[in-house]
Amino acid sequence: MPQFFNKKLLLLLVSIIVLVALIGFSLREREELTWPEKFLKDTTGWVGNVFNKPVSGITGFVGDLKELQHTYDENKKLKARLDEYVLLKTQVQDLKEENEELRDNLGKEDDLRKYSPIQATVIGRNPERWHEMLTINKGKRNGVEKNMAVITSTGLVGKVKVATDFTASVQLLSSIDKANRVSAIIQGKDKAFGLIEGFDDEKNLLLMKRIPYDKKIKKNSLVITSGYGGIFPKGLPIGKVVDVKVDQYGLNQTAYIEPSTDFYDINNVMVVKREVGGVEDEMDGEDEVK
């Protein structure tokens, strides 16, 4: 059958082989992107940055107008909480000083909580929405590295997946990827450790798995990062527990966590660099990246 092996069919077969090879190549854990990918990312990032300013200006203005309607009510509520706030602030100040003093006494300088933030603006989002990723306008030139934690003012949103010279892509906690794990603590009398992995996107809840079965977890307890992963600082807020279920085999529990940040409305983020380094370079992000 000579016409069976015609040019078009051959081309189709070759392209399927190329497809499989390319997918295999890109699914590998890669430390660095190849230079054409970096070039494309930086170029489109630059164009996105140019467009971002006027667009965010307009949307910001519209958003402000909407918020103006609720100002009166909000103001009332906020005034009521102001007294509370003053009290809390003095307490925090007091505790901070005490903490510092005690640290001085111990001579302990390392602190997993300490970090330095890099401010960044979101200039784009993966339109495909299968891989929940954001593009931000700071890259390696500004000190952003792979696997750093990304937060907003309300809490943890994800980690840096790829950093090029001028942009970086942030993988959100809500993206479904087996390599996307964060070591976390549920606060309470009896602290419970576990890993945040997976997202229930119908209910908008994060899943925290591998909590030992005998831990009693109260609803509404707060969840923070543990800092044991190697790169994330300790104490970044993630959300609060809304439900707990025992796993299939009864060995572990899974907590459903309502994230403190709205993953769908993120405009400004901070990339945080922990001041205490990981153990070794090879060990970096042992928990976050597996």
Partner: peptide, 21 residues
Amino acid sequence: GLTYDAVYTEILGVYMLLIPF
């Protein structure tokens, strides 16, 4: 398609071959 793969999805090849097809 290739640009889309490299910039947004980070899995090369899918759009690059699908769109021309």
